[in-house]
């Protein structure tokens, strides 16, 4: 099953399995964390088989560690390929980050310096992953709580070059851009006007939390709250130029499914309003 432009989906999380299986609520597509479904004999894989009969799927990975100087984990790639071959998801994505070194994994999306060396390395890893999997992958812009003095490229330049070199697509997380813009003090619209929106095939919308310190505050990409007004505004801006399907992500303090479905409806309303306004302008 394919995911159509402008369709709004939600992340599949275990507390909502029963609701989705029993009631099949009106949500256009589901995104799953690939690593939770790799075991062929697991309950989770069984449930995914059931749900795949009703919803198009997008697979979102956190384990490939594409930015690591370790070689790609071939066993993990093999398991991922088996999963992808079984479900043929509409979209397949990973992150612009690293999570392992010398075979040790940190279960987190860690930042890479944006240098020519790391771009060259990341391109090789993406090439290898796409060749092994036999399909295009999307790369998501990360949240980063630090930046490196050695970085010579902006994140959007890095991603645009990556697309040009490897033919990969982009997964644009608008919350990550907003969180980074506050933490690193830049204008999110500068980012959005420079990133190659024609390569964007999926959008993420999520919430963050604010950590307060004596020195100031840091936004944390916690995915545990509703999408904030500023991110809805970015979504509205992007929607004028990009029809990639959008996703409501919620990974911590997971609420009842009705809360997520309300966020899905809000996303639909925002894009309808945006499209109506755009249409009105075109008529003039």
């Amino acid at each position: 099953m394919t995911i159509l432009p402008n369709q709004v989906g939600m992340g599949l999380r275990a507390p909502h399995y029963q609701d989705l299986l029993s009631n099949q609520p009106d949500v256009s597509w589901l995104e799953v964390h690939s690593e939770n479904y790799l075991d062929d004999a697991s309950v989770q894989r069984h449930i995914l088989r059931e749900l795949s009969q009703h919803y198009p799927l997008s697979f979102h990975g956190v384990g490939l560690s594409l930015g690591s100087t370790d070689s790609l984990n071939l066993q993990h790639l093999k398991s991922l390929k088996e999963l992808v071959n079984e479900f043929n998801p509409a979209l397949l994505s990973e992150h612009l980050s690293w999570s392992s070194v010398s075979g040790r994994y940190f279960n987190d999306l860690l930042p890479i310096p944006y240098t020519k060396q790391s771009l060259q390395y990341f391109c090789q890893q993406v090439d290898q992953a796409q060749q092994f999997l036999g399909r295009q992958i999307l790369i998501e812009n990360p949240t980063a709580y630090l930046s490196y003095k050695d970085s010579t490229l902006t994140e959007w330049h890095f991603l645009n070059n990556l697309v040009a070199e490897t033919g990969c697509g982009l997964l644009l997380d608008l919350n990550n851009i907003y969180v980074n813009s506050v933490n690193h003090q830049f204008e999110p619209l500068d980012y959005l006007s420079q990133i190659n929106l024609s390569a964007v095939q999926e959008l993420h919308l999520a919430g963050f939390t604010i950590n307060e310190y004596d020195e100031g505050q840091i936004l944390i990409d916690s995915h545990g709250s509703p999408v904030c007004d500023e991110v809805w505004q970015l979504f509205s801006w992007v929607r004028k130029l990009c029809s990639a399907p959008a996703l409501i992500e919620w990974d911590s303090d997971i609420p009842d499914i009705e809360v997520l479905l309300a966020e899905v409806d809000k996303a639909k309303s925002v894009q309808e309003r945006t499209q109506n306004r755009t249409g009105a302008l075109e008529n003039v």
């Binding site: 310096p113 630090l146 490196y148 003095k149 310190y213």
Partner: peptide, 23 residues
């Protein structure tokens, strides 16, 4: 190698350290 700003490099690393342990 980390850009400092309002927060020190060590404070920024602490966010990742916390995420690693807490997750």
């Amino acid at each position: 190698q980390i850009e400092a700003g309002v927060f020190s490099a060590e404070q920024k690393l602490q966010i990742y350290r916390n995420n690693f342990i807490m997750s």
